[in-house]
């Protein structure tokens, strides 16, 4: 069972990841992301992270991926435009990826032999207790952080007051063809 979930999760995650970074159409990319997130949730189950898997689906998939899709919905259809490919940029991306890959793989493959997973998976009670004892400080702080993030997002994204709008209108280039 575990192996099966592992395989499914792996394929979904990797496939979704590939789609997410390759797709020209951003919707497809968003779908790819969603697939990756789902696959990851699948991957959490065999290693005793059922609770986290559920939270991943609820929050990550349900909130983050959905908000990304919202934004894509609210924006002009970039994908309709044919964009010129920048070979140099592609090359640079590949090189950076390869350079980063070397130490990461080296580290991953050098990880010591795993202990047997004989112990029981952590229970929700355990997680809950940890959140309120050992990790109570980050727990409280993250709620502050989320509040601040919301307020910040509102401040950044709201409309400018009337006078500044006029000033802005002069500086900003005229609306032209949007590009992706």
């Amino acid at each position: 069972m575990n192996d099966f979930l592992f395989i499914v999760g792996l394929l979904t995650a990797l496939g979704g990841g590939l789609l997410a970074v390759i797709a020209r159409n951003l919707f497809h990319a968003a779908i790819g992301l969603a697939a990756t997130l789902a696959g990851t949730a699948c991957l959490f189950v065999p290693i005793g992270g059922e609770f986290v898997a559920v939270i991943q689906v609820l929050v990550y998939l349900g909130a983050v991926a959905v908000s990304i899709v919202f934004i894509l919905m609210l924006s002009p259809p970039f994908y309709l435009k044919r964009v010129h490919r920048n070979a140099l940029k592609l090359l640079g991306a590949v090189i950076v990826t390869l350079v980063v890959a070397v130490p990461l793989f080296a580290a991953a493959l050098a990880a010591g032999p795993a202990k047997g997973s004989t112990a029981a998976a952590p229970t929700v009670q355990q997680i809950g207790r940890a959140l309120l004892t050992e990790f109570v400080f980050p727990f409280e702080i993250i709620s502050v952080l989320l509040t601040v993030a919301i307020i910040g997002a509102i401040v950044i994204a709201r409309d400018l007051p009337e006078d500044e709008q006029a000033v802005l209108a002069e500086k900003v280039p005229a609306v032209k063809e949007v590009d992706a």
Binding site: N2, D3, T97, F105, A108, L109
Partner: peptide, 25 residues
């Protein structure tokens, strides 16, 4: 199948996908 190494390699590959996308998009 579910070994530490396989999980780690998987996470590295996913991370690299992310790096590539960050550079290219």
């Amino acid at each position: 199948m579910t070994t530490l190494t396989s999980y780690l390699v998987l996470s590295v590959i996913l991370f690299l996908f992310g790096v590539f996308g960050l550079m290219e998009r």
